[in-house]
């Protein structure tokens, strides 16, 4: 905890940025994960580009972690039922607000979208507040 890793964080961020630019260059689409996931449930019309994106998002991390187990570092801080509830809240919130850390936080902010800037400030604030309260309540 509290270990600062600015170099790997910046390299990872650059790869995420390249992903967003590639998807816009090739397919004209915003690389927003909650939008890409949500659209899967609006009929098969867009499956041709949505499902391969999600496949890449699953397969490449699996390959990286298989070849280099040191990248498998996930530590879950919350109970499994809290994770289920958090998943539901994230699902509803991202559909209601049309985006998450990728769609608003990266793609929308890069377009200087006012909606995305407002959304990013709000989810950062409630995220920070939730961590503060969760620590106080002993949820971690």
């Amino acid at each position: 905890m509290g270990s600062f890793t600015p170099i790997s964080a910046t390299i990872g961020g650059i790869l995420i940025g390249l992903s967003a630019v590639l998807l816009m260059y090739g397919n004209g689409r915003i690389a927003g994960i909650s939008g890409i996931l949500g659209g899967v449930f609006n009929g098969r019309k867009d499956w041709g580009w949505r499902l391969p994106f999600l496949a890449g998002l699953i397969v490449i991390p699996f390959l990286i972690v298989s070849l280099r187990p040191e990248f498998d570092v996930a530590i879950f801080r919350t109970h499994k039922w809290t994770l289920l509830i958090a998943g539901i809240i994230v699902g509803i919130g991202t559909q209601l607000g049309n985006g998450c850390t990728s769609g608003h936080g990266v793609c929308g902010n890069a377009r200087l979208s006012e909606r995305s800037i407002v959304a990013t400030i709000i989810f950062m604030a409630t995220g920070i507040g939730t961590v503060f309260v969760s620590k106080y309540l002993g949820l971690y």
């Binding site: 909650s34 996931l37 809240i89 991202t94 998450c100 709000i122 989810f123 995220g127 939730t130 969760s134």
Partner: peptide
């Protein structure tokens, strides 16, 4: 409200959709 809810779930779990 959507962004606010998303942040709450993100903070609770440490997870966003990607």
């Amino acid at each position: 409200s959507g962004a606010a809810l998303f942040g709450i779930g993100w903070g609770l779990s440490g997870l966003c959709p990607g």
